[in-house]
Design a protein around this nucleic acid. Structure first.
Lengths: 177, 177
DNA sequence: TATTGTTATACTCTATAACTATA
DNA sequence: TATAGTTATAGAGTATAACAATA
Protein backbone atom coordinates (compact mmCIF):
# COMPACT_ATOMS: atom_id res chain seq x y z
CA UNK A 1 0.00 0.00 0.00
CA UNK A 2 1.66 3.13 1.25
CA UNK A 3 4.09 2.95 4.11
CA UNK A 4 5.22 -0.33 5.62
CA UNK A 5 6.59 1.57 8.60
CA UNK A 6 8.98 -1.22 9.45
CA UNK A 7 10.70 -1.94 12.70
CA UNK A 8 9.34 0.42 15.27
CA UNK A 9 12.08 2.67 16.58
CA UNK A 10 10.17 5.50 18.19
CA UNK A 11 13.26 7.41 19.22
CA UNK A 12 11.39 8.97 22.06
CA UNK A 13 12.54 12.19 23.66
CA UNK A 14 13.47 12.10 27.31
CA UNK A 15 10.47 11.34 29.48
CA UNK A 16 8.40 14.29 30.55
CA UNK A 17 7.92 15.06 34.19
CA UNK A 18 5.23 12.95 35.77
CA UNK A 19 1.76 14.36 35.43
CA UNK A 20 -1.26 13.61 37.54
CA UNK A 21 -3.73 13.34 34.65
CA UNK A 22 -4.87 10.08 33.07
CA UNK A 23 -3.55 8.52 29.88
CA UNK A 24 -2.37 11.22 27.48
CA UNK A 25 -2.37 8.76 24.58
CA UNK A 26 0.49 8.60 22.11
CA UNK A 27 3.31 10.81 23.26
CA UNK A 28 2.77 14.30 21.88
CA UNK A 29 6.23 14.95 20.59
CA UNK A 30 5.31 17.77 18.31
CA UNK A 31 6.63 15.53 15.57
CA UNK A 32 4.85 13.63 12.83
CA UNK A 33 2.67 10.60 13.50
CA UNK A 34 4.69 7.57 12.45
CA UNK A 35 2.27 4.73 12.98
CA UNK A 36 -1.48 5.33 12.94
CA UNK A 37 -3.26 3.95 15.97
CA UNK A 38 -6.57 2.42 14.88
CA UNK A 39 -7.14 0.41 18.05
CA UNK A 40 -10.37 2.07 19.10
CA UNK A 41 -12.05 1.77 15.73
CA UNK A 42 -11.07 -1.87 15.62
CA UNK A 43 -13.16 -2.52 18.71
CA UNK A 44 -16.31 -1.56 16.77
CA UNK A 45 -18.24 -4.19 14.85
CA UNK A 46 -19.70 -1.55 12.58
CA UNK A 47 -16.28 -0.31 11.52
CA UNK A 48 -14.89 -3.78 10.97
CA UNK A 49 -17.96 -5.04 9.13
CA UNK A 50 -17.98 -2.06 6.83
CA UNK A 51 -14.28 -2.41 6.05
CA UNK A 52 -14.67 -6.13 5.39
CA UNK A 53 -17.71 -5.60 3.16
CA UNK A 54 -15.87 -2.95 1.14
CA UNK A 55 -12.91 -5.29 0.72
CA UNK A 56 -15.08 -8.04 -0.70
CA UNK A 57 -16.91 -5.58 -2.93
CA UNK A 58 -13.61 -4.31 -4.32
CA UNK A 59 -12.93 -7.87 -5.46
CA UNK A 60 -16.51 -8.33 -6.60
CA UNK A 61 -16.70 -5.34 -8.93
CA UNK A 62 -13.97 -6.24 -11.45
CA UNK A 63 -14.78 -9.94 -11.44
CA UNK A 64 -18.52 -9.47 -12.00
CA UNK A 65 -18.09 -6.72 -14.56
CA UNK A 66 -17.96 -9.43 -17.22
CA UNK A 67 -21.60 -10.13 -16.40
CA UNK A 68 -22.50 -6.47 -16.09
CA UNK A 69 -23.67 -7.15 -12.55
CA UNK A 70 -23.14 -4.89 -9.60
CA UNK A 71 -23.69 -6.18 -6.06
CA UNK A 72 -27.36 -5.36 -5.71
CA UNK A 73 -28.16 -6.47 -9.26
CA UNK A 74 -26.49 -9.77 -8.48
CA UNK A 75 -28.57 -10.13 -5.32
CA UNK A 76 -31.75 -9.33 -7.22
CA UNK A 77 -31.01 -11.82 -9.98
CA UNK A 78 -30.08 -14.46 -7.44
CA UNK A 79 -33.34 -14.07 -5.55
CA UNK A 80 -35.38 -14.16 -8.75
CA UNK A 81 -33.52 -17.26 -9.88
CA UNK A 82 -34.16 -19.05 -6.60
CA UNK A 83 -37.69 -17.67 -6.23
CA UNK A 84 -39.40 -17.71 -9.62
CA UNK A 85 -42.42 -15.42 -9.55
CA UNK A 86 -41.14 -13.21 -6.74
CA UNK A 87 -42.56 -9.68 -6.83
CA UNK A 88 -40.70 -6.40 -6.72
CA UNK A 89 -42.22 -5.70 -3.34
CA UNK A 90 -40.79 -8.94 -1.97
CA UNK A 91 -37.37 -8.13 -3.35
CA UNK A 92 -37.50 -4.75 -1.66
CA UNK A 93 -38.42 -6.07 1.78
CA UNK A 94 -35.94 -8.93 1.54
CA UNK A 95 -32.99 -6.82 0.42
CA UNK A 96 -33.97 -3.60 2.20
CA UNK A 97 -34.31 -1.64 -1.03
CA UNK A 98 -36.55 1.31 -1.77
CA UNK A 99 -39.09 0.45 -4.49
CA UNK A 100 -38.20 3.44 -6.70
CA UNK A 101 -34.59 2.30 -6.77
CA UNK A 102 -35.53 -1.15 -7.92
CA UNK A 103 -37.56 -0.01 -10.93
CA UNK A 104 -34.63 1.09 -13.05
CA UNK A 105 -32.56 -1.92 -12.06
CA UNK A 106 -35.25 -4.37 -13.14
CA UNK A 107 -35.88 -2.41 -16.30
CA UNK A 108 -32.18 -2.70 -17.12
CA UNK A 109 -31.78 -6.45 -16.73
CA UNK A 110 -35.14 -6.97 -18.42
CA UNK A 111 -33.94 -4.99 -21.43
CA UNK A 112 -30.82 -7.16 -21.47
CA UNK A 113 -33.06 -10.19 -21.80
CA UNK A 114 -32.15 -11.74 -18.45
CA UNK A 115 -35.59 -11.63 -16.86
CA UNK A 116 -39.23 -11.19 -17.76
CA UNK A 117 -42.38 -10.11 -15.98
CA UNK A 118 -45.56 -12.15 -15.98
CA UNK A 119 -48.99 -11.56 -14.56
CA UNK A 120 -49.27 -12.30 -10.90
CA UNK A 121 -51.73 -15.18 -10.36
CA UNK A 122 -53.80 -13.50 -7.67
CA UNK A 123 -52.95 -9.78 -7.59
CA UNK A 124 -53.34 -7.77 -10.73
CA UNK A 125 -51.34 -4.89 -9.29
CA UNK A 126 -48.24 -7.06 -8.97
CA UNK A 127 -46.05 -8.87 -11.45
CA UNK A 128 -44.12 -12.08 -11.01
CA UNK A 129 -40.45 -11.94 -12.00
CA UNK A 130 -38.79 -14.83 -13.80
CA UNK A 131 -35.36 -15.43 -15.30
CA UNK A 132 -35.12 -16.19 -18.99
CA UNK A 133 -33.01 -19.11 -20.16
CA UNK A 134 -30.22 -16.63 -20.83
CA UNK A 135 -30.73 -15.16 -17.37
CA UNK A 136 -30.45 -18.56 -15.73
CA UNK A 137 -27.29 -19.34 -17.66
CA UNK A 138 -25.74 -16.01 -16.75
CA UNK A 139 -26.73 -16.34 -13.12
CA UNK A 140 -25.24 -19.80 -12.88
CA UNK A 141 -21.88 -18.55 -14.09
CA UNK A 142 -22.12 -15.43 -11.96
CA UNK A 143 -22.78 -17.45 -8.85
CA UNK A 144 -19.79 -19.68 -9.50
CA UNK A 145 -17.67 -16.61 -9.99
CA UNK A 146 -18.99 -15.06 -6.79
CA UNK A 147 -18.13 -18.14 -4.77
CA UNK A 148 -14.64 -18.30 -6.24
CA UNK A 149 -14.02 -14.58 -5.78
CA UNK A 150 -15.03 -14.72 -2.13
CA UNK A 151 -12.46 -17.40 -1.40
CA UNK A 152 -9.78 -15.48 -3.28
CA UNK A 153 -10.70 -12.28 -1.45
CA UNK A 154 -10.37 -13.93 1.96
CA UNK A 155 -7.28 -16.12 1.75
CA UNK A 156 -6.66 -15.96 5.49
CA UNK A 157 -9.99 -17.50 6.45
CA UNK A 158 -10.17 -21.24 6.93
CA UNK A 159 -13.37 -22.99 5.80
CA UNK A 160 -14.41 -23.27 9.42
CA UNK A 161 -13.75 -19.61 10.08
CA UNK A 162 -15.82 -18.74 7.05
CA UNK A 163 -18.76 -20.64 8.47
CA UNK A 164 -18.34 -19.05 11.88
CA UNK A 165 -18.06 -15.58 10.41
CA UNK A 166 -21.24 -15.99 8.37
CA UNK A 167 -23.12 -17.34 11.37
CA UNK A 168 -22.12 -14.38 13.53
CA UNK A 169 -22.88 -11.82 10.82
CA UNK A 170 -26.35 -13.27 10.45
CA UNK A 171 -26.89 -12.86 14.17
CA UNK A 172 -26.21 -9.17 13.67
CA UNK A 173 -28.64 -8.41 10.87
CA UNK A 174 -31.28 -11.06 11.60
CA UNK A 175 -32.45 -10.10 15.09
CA UNK A 176 -35.08 -12.81 15.02
CA UNK A 177 -34.38 -16.46 14.12
CA UNK B 1 -33.92 2.25 7.91
CA UNK B 2 -37.08 1.42 6.12
CA UNK B 3 -39.11 -1.36 7.65
CA UNK B 4 -38.17 -3.21 10.79
CA UNK B 5 -40.06 -6.20 9.43
CA UNK B 6 -41.19 -7.18 12.88
CA UNK B 7 -42.04 -10.59 14.15
CA UNK B 8 -41.44 -12.87 11.21
CA UNK B 9 -44.32 -15.32 10.79
CA UNK B 10 -43.50 -17.05 7.54
CA UNK B 11 -46.73 -19.05 7.51
CA UNK B 12 -45.03 -22.10 6.12
CA UNK B 13 -46.87 -24.58 3.93
CA UNK B 14 -47.05 -28.22 5.05
CA UNK B 15 -43.81 -30.14 4.52
CA UNK B 16 -43.35 -31.59 1.10
CA UNK B 17 -42.91 -35.33 0.48
CA UNK B 18 -39.36 -36.56 0.26
CA UNK B 19 -37.92 -36.33 -3.21
CA UNK B 20 -34.90 -38.10 -4.69
CA UNK B 21 -33.55 -35.27 -6.86
CA UNK B 22 -31.07 -32.68 -5.76
CA UNK B 23 -32.62 -29.54 -4.34
CA UNK B 24 -34.67 -27.89 -7.12
CA UNK B 25 -35.37 -24.91 -4.90
CA UNK B 26 -38.85 -23.63 -4.15
CA UNK B 27 -41.46 -25.59 -6.03
CA UNK B 28 -42.51 -23.77 -9.19
CA UNK B 29 -46.23 -23.92 -8.62
CA UNK B 30 -47.13 -21.14 -10.99
CA UNK B 31 -48.41 -19.46 -7.84
CA UNK B 32 -47.01 -16.64 -5.79
CA UNK B 33 -43.76 -16.99 -3.86
CA UNK B 34 -44.74 -17.43 -0.23
CA UNK B 35 -41.39 -17.56 1.49
CA UNK B 36 -38.33 -15.96 -0.07
CA UNK B 37 -35.37 -18.30 -0.29
CA UNK B 38 -32.18 -16.37 0.52
CA UNK B 39 -30.02 -19.41 1.14
CA UNK B 40 -27.50 -18.80 -1.60
CA UNK B 41 -26.88 -15.16 -0.72
CA UNK B 42 -26.41 -16.19 2.88
CA UNK B 43 -23.41 -18.32 1.88
CA UNK B 44 -21.58 -15.19 0.75
CA UNK B 45 -19.43 -13.27 3.20
CA UNK B 46 -19.81 -10.11 1.15
CA UNK B 47 -23.59 -10.20 1.34
CA UNK B 48 -23.66 -10.96 5.05
CA UNK B 49 -20.99 -8.39 5.92
CA UNK B 50 -22.79 -5.70 3.97
CA UNK B 51 -26.13 -6.47 5.60
CA UNK B 52 -24.54 -6.50 9.05
CA UNK B 53 -22.71 -3.23 8.44
CA UNK B 54 -25.91 -1.56 7.25
CA UNK B 55 -27.75 -2.78 10.33
CA UNK B 56 -25.17 -1.25 12.66
CA UNK B 57 -25.14 1.98 10.65
CA UNK B 58 -28.91 2.23 10.92
CA UNK B 59 -28.47 2.27 14.68
CA UNK B 60 -25.47 4.55 14.45
CA UNK B 61 -27.11 7.34 12.48
CA UNK B 62 -29.88 8.42 14.89
CA UNK B 63 -27.72 7.94 17.98
CA UNK B 64 -24.78 9.96 16.66
CA UNK B 65 -26.92 12.68 15.14
CA UNK B 66 -26.74 14.46 18.50
CA UNK B 67 -23.04 14.96 17.81
CA UNK B 68 -23.58 15.77 14.16
CA UNK B 69 -21.29 12.89 13.28
CA UNK B 70 -21.81 10.47 10.45
CA UNK B 71 -19.83 7.22 10.29
CA UNK B 72 -16.81 8.46 8.38
CA UNK B 73 -16.67 11.74 10.33
CA UNK B 74 -16.65 9.72 13.51
CA UNK B 75 -13.80 7.58 12.21
CA UNK B 76 -11.83 10.66 11.19
CA UNK B 77 -12.31 12.37 14.54
CA UNK B 78 -11.40 9.19 16.36
CA UNK B 79 -8.15 8.79 14.44
CA UNK B 80 -7.21 12.42 14.97
CA UNK B 81 -7.97 12.12 18.66
CA UNK B 82 -5.80 9.05 19.02
CA UNK B 83 -3.12 10.31 16.64
CA UNK B 84 -2.55 14.02 17.25
CA UNK B 85 -0.75 15.54 14.31
CA UNK B 86 -1.93 12.97 11.78
CA UNK B 87 -2.08 14.28 8.23
CA UNK B 88 -4.96 14.16 5.77
CA UNK B 89 -2.94 11.81 3.63
CA UNK B 90 -2.56 9.40 6.51
CA UNK B 91 -6.27 9.53 7.21
CA UNK B 92 -6.99 8.73 3.59
CA UNK B 93 -4.73 5.71 3.40
CA UNK B 94 -5.86 4.40 6.77
CA UNK B 95 -9.59 4.74 6.09
CA UNK B 96 -9.47 4.16 2.34
CA UNK B 97 -10.84 7.58 1.51
CA UNK B 98 -10.21 9.68 -1.57
CA UNK B 99 -8.42 12.91 -0.66
CA UNK B 100 -10.99 15.16 -2.36
CA UNK B 101 -13.73 13.66 -0.24
CA UNK B 102 -11.87 14.37 2.96
CA UNK B 103 -11.39 18.07 2.31
CA UNK B 104 -14.97 19.12 2.87
CA UNK B 105 -15.35 16.86 5.85
CA UNK B 106 -12.33 18.33 7.62
CA UNK B 107 -13.43 21.81 6.70
CA UNK B 108 -16.80 21.11 8.30
CA UNK B 109 -15.58 19.84 11.65
CA UNK B 110 -12.91 22.52 11.69
CA UNK B 111 -15.56 25.20 11.23
CA UNK B 112 -17.48 23.63 14.12
CA UNK B 113 -14.42 24.14 16.29
CA UNK B 114 -13.70 20.46 16.86
CA UNK B 115 -10.27 20.34 15.23
CA UNK B 116 -7.49 22.59 14.07
CA UNK B 117 -4.64 22.40 11.61
CA UNK B 118 -1.05 23.20 12.51
CA UNK B 119 2.13 23.32 10.50
CA UNK B 120 3.72 19.97 9.89
CA UNK B 121 7.13 19.82 11.55
CA UNK B 122 9.07 18.50 8.57
CA UNK B 123 6.90 18.88 5.46
CA UNK B 124 5.57 22.28 4.55
CA UNK B 125 3.09 20.77 2.12
CA UNK B 126 1.32 18.88 4.87
CA UNK B 127 -0.59 19.93 7.93
CA UNK B 128 -0.96 18.17 11.25
CA UNK B 129 -4.51 17.71 12.52
CA UNK B 130 -5.37 18.14 16.19
CA UNK B 131 -8.56 18.08 18.21
CA UNK B 132 -9.53 21.16 20.15
CA UNK B 133 -10.59 20.84 23.78
CA UNK B 134 -14.18 20.89 22.56
CA UNK B 135 -13.34 18.25 19.98
CA UNK B 136 -11.82 15.99 22.59
CA UNK B 137 -14.83 16.37 24.82
CA UNK B 138 -17.23 15.65 21.99
CA UNK B 139 -15.22 12.67 20.83
CA UNK B 140 -15.13 11.19 24.29
CA UNK B 141 -18.93 11.28 24.53
CA UNK B 142 -19.31 10.07 20.97
CA UNK B 143 -17.06 7.09 21.60
CA UNK B 144 -19.03 6.11 24.67
CA UNK B 145 -22.23 6.37 22.65
CA UNK B 146 -20.75 4.29 19.85
CA UNK B 147 -19.75 1.51 22.20
CA UNK B 148 -23.19 1.49 23.82
CA UNK B 149 -25.02 1.59 20.51
CA UNK B 150 -23.06 -1.34 19.17
CA UNK B 151 -24.09 -3.52 22.05
CA UNK B 152 -27.71 -2.43 21.70
CA UNK B 153 -27.61 -3.09 17.97
CA UNK B 154 -26.30 -6.63 18.43
CA UNK B 155 -28.25 -8.07 21.35
CA UNK B 156 -27.82 -11.65 20.16
CA UNK B 157 -24.01 -11.57 20.29
CA UNK B 158 -22.30 -12.72 23.45
CA UNK B 159 -19.14 -10.83 24.49
CA UNK B 160 -17.09 -13.77 23.27
CA UNK B 161 -18.88 -13.87 19.93
CA UNK B 162 -18.24 -10.17 19.55
CA UNK B 163 -14.52 -10.73 19.97
CA UNK B 164 -14.53 -13.63 17.53
CA UNK B 165 -16.53 -11.69 14.97
CA UNK B 166 -14.14 -8.75 15.09
CA UNK B 167 -11.12 -11.02 14.80
CA UNK B 168 -12.51 -12.72 11.71
CA UNK B 169 -13.59 -9.46 10.08
CA UNK B 170 -10.08 -8.10 10.53
CA UNK B 171 -8.71 -11.17 8.79
CA UNK B 172 -10.86 -10.22 5.83
CA UNK B 173 -9.79 -6.61 5.38
CA UNK B 174 -6.25 -6.81 6.78
CA UNK B 175 -4.55 -9.33 4.46
CA UNK B 176 -1.25 -8.83 6.23
CA UNK B 177 -0.79 -9.05 10.00
C1' DT C 1 -58.36 2.87 3.18
C1' DA C 2 -54.12 0.30 2.02
C1' DT C 3 -50.85 -1.61 -1.26
C1' DT C 4 -48.10 -2.40 -5.90
C1' DG C 5 -45.57 -0.35 -9.05
C1' DT C 6 -44.10 3.89 -10.94
C1' DT C 7 -42.22 8.83 -11.96
C1' DA C 8 -39.71 12.63 -10.63
C1' DT C 9 -36.49 14.42 -7.76
C1' DA C 10 -33.10 15.39 -4.17
C1' DC C 11 -29.52 14.16 -1.25
C1' DT C 12 -25.48 11.50 0.10
C1' DC C 13 -21.46 8.96 -1.01
C1' DT C 14 -17.67 8.01 -3.83
C1' DA C 15 -14.47 8.57 -7.86
C1' DT C 16 -11.61 11.16 -11.46
C1' DA C 17 -9.04 15.01 -13.60
C1' DA C 18 -6.40 18.75 -13.04
C1' DC C 19 -4.23 22.37 -10.48
C1' DT C 20 -0.61 24.56 -6.58
C1' DA C 21 3.05 24.32 -3.63
C1' DT C 22 6.31 21.92 -1.90
C1' DA C 23 9.58 17.66 -1.74
C1' DT D 1 9.62 13.58 -10.98
C1' DA D 2 6.63 12.64 -7.13
C1' DT D 3 3.64 13.94 -3.26
C1' DA D 4 0.10 16.80 -0.03
C1' DG D 5 -3.65 19.29 -0.36
C1' DT D 6 -7.19 21.37 -3.05
C1' DT D 7 -11.01 22.47 -6.62
C1' DA D 8 -14.46 21.19 -9.68
C1' DT D 9 -17.20 17.78 -11.32
C1' DA D 10 -19.30 13.40 -12.45
C1' DG D 11 -21.25 9.25 -11.20
C1' DA D 12 -23.26 5.77 -7.97
C1' DG D 13 -26.20 4.86 -4.32
C1' DT D 14 -30.10 5.92 -1.54
C1' DA D 15 -34.13 8.62 0.11
C1' DT D 16 -38.90 11.06 -0.06
C1' DA D 17 -43.30 12.71 -2.24
C1' DA D 18 -46.90 11.91 -5.12
C1' DC D 19 -49.57 9.40 -8.53
C1' DA D 20 -52.56 5.46 -11.06
C1' DA D 21 -54.30 0.95 -10.76
C1' DT D 22 -55.91 -2.47 -7.87
C1' DA D 23 -56.89 -4.74 -3.34
Amino acid sequence: MTEPSPVRQPDLPPPMPARPEADPGPVATGLAVERVDTSFLETLIGYNARRAALTIISHFLPRMAQFGLRPVEFSVLTLIGHNPGITARQLCTTLDLQPPNLVGMIKGVEKRGLLEKRDHPSDRRAQGLYLTAEGESQLEQAQETALALEVEATPRLTPLERITLIRLLRKVYQPDH
